[in-house]
């Protein structure tokens, strides 16, 4: 069972308290009515599903209830970092630094 650091509780808690909530940093456009069908498809249906580093959302559902983002490797399951919702997407350099 993984230990996950909740950036709101500022504590490591067991995986049992959390729920995965899919890929992170998918922005719901302000004016969705203007979206083309292709853009909608890309936004709503298409996911990266990478082997390796994945930016994903988690919810501390049996804890503080907050959604947050995480950098996790889908190969090792290892969490490199968790951060609050709304904080910017980590740069490639930052991720590379964390992987060292």
């Amino acid at each position: 069972m993984l230990l996950i650091h909740c950036p709101y509780c500022e504590a490591e808690r067991p995986e049992l308290e959390f729920a995965n909530a899919g890929e992170a940093h998918i922005v719901r456009p302000k004016d969705m009515s203007q979206m083309s069908d292709e853009d909608f498809e890309a936004m709503f249906f298409i996911r990266d599903n990478p082997k390796g580093i994945n930016l994903e959302r988690w919810r501390h559902v049996h804890g503080c209830g907050r959604f947050f983002n995480a950098i996790r490797s889908t190969v090792t399951d290892k969490f490199l970092k968790t951060y609050k919702a709304g904080e910017p997407r980590p740069s490639g350099d930052e991720i590379a630094e964390l992987m060292k």
Binding site: R66, F67, A85
Partner: peptide, 13 residues
């Protein structure tokens, strides 16, 4: 409730 919290926290904070 999860669906509502998701929109409230992440799209309309």
């Amino acid at each position: 409730l999860n669906h509502m919290e998701d929109y409230l926290q992440t799209e309309f904070p």
